[in-house]
Design a protein around this nucleic acid. Structure first.
Lengths: 110, 110
DNA sequence: CGTGTAAGGAATTCTGACACG
DNA sequence: CGTGTAAGGAATTCTGACACG
C-alpha cells in the first residue's frame, strides 16, 4: 500500500529518452505498445510517459526479438507470467482468510 | 560502487514533467539552476534532464522559498551539508586506512 | 509481421531580453 | 532578487499512411 517513492514504476520518461536508454527506435517503441507489450501513460495533451520498469521491459523485449521471438509470443509469455502471479496472490489471500478465520490473525502488514 | 539501477539518481525526466511533478514553473526551475541549486544533465541537443533526486530537491527548495529563504541562503545550506558529508567520508577513509594498516582488513565491499 | 520513412501539425524546450518590484 | 512574459527558432512528439518483405 506504499506509494510514495516507487521511482521504478513512476511514469515520467518521454519517448525520446526511452529511445536513448534502450537503443530502440521510437517507431519500435510505439509499435510494441500497439501490440500491447507495454503501457505508457500520457501527459495532458498526449505525450507518452514511461517508467524505469517499462525501460527494462523494453530491453527484455528487444532481446527476445533479437532471438526471433514474435511480438505475439512475447505477449503470450507475459500473460502466462501474469496469471502465475495472480494465482499466487489468490492462494495467499485464501491462506490468510483461513488463518484469520481459525486463529484470528491480527491486522499485520504482511 | 553499484551503478546499475539507481533509479533515483538517473537523469531522465524532462523539464515539462518536472514542472508537473513539483508544481514549479519552468522559469523557476531554470532559474534555480542559474543560481546553482540544481544541476540537470542535457540531451545531445541541449534539453535538460532531471532525476527523482532533483525533483525532491526542487520540492525542498520550493518549501524554503515559501518560508522566505533566499536562493543564496539555500545554496549556503547546501554547501554546508555537502562539507559535512565530505568530512565524514574522509574520516571514514582515514579510519579504514588505520585499521587496514594495523590489522589488514580484507577487501570488504563497504 | 516488424520497421522505416515522409507529411503536417501541435506542443516542447531553449536562450536572451524586457518588465516589475 | 525572483518570476512572468512575448519572441523566434529548433527539436520533439503525435497520428495515419505507404512501403517492403
Amino acid at each position: 500500500m506504499k506509494e510514495d517513492p516507487l521511482y521504478k514504476s513512476r511514469k515520467v520518461i518521454t519517448i525520446g529518452v526511452v529511445s536513448e536508454l534502450t537503443g530502440l527506435s521510437e517507431r519500435q517503441i510505439r509499435y510494441y505498445e500497439e501490440r500491447k507489450l507495454i503501457f505508457p501513460e500520457r501527459t495532458e495533451r498526449g505525450n507518452r510517459k514511461y517508467s524505469f520498469s517499462d525501460v527494462e521491459r523494453l530491453i527484455d523485449i528487444a532481446n527476445k526479438r533479437d532471438e526471433g521471438v514474435r511480438t505475439y509470443e512475447i505477449r503470450q509469455e507475459m500473460l502466462k507470467d501474469k496469471k502465475r502471479e495472480d494465482d499466487a496472490k489468490i492462494r495467499n489471500q485464501m491462506l490468510r482468510g483461513q488463518l484469520n478465520a481459525r486463529f484470528g490473525i491480527p491486522k499485520g502488514k504482511n
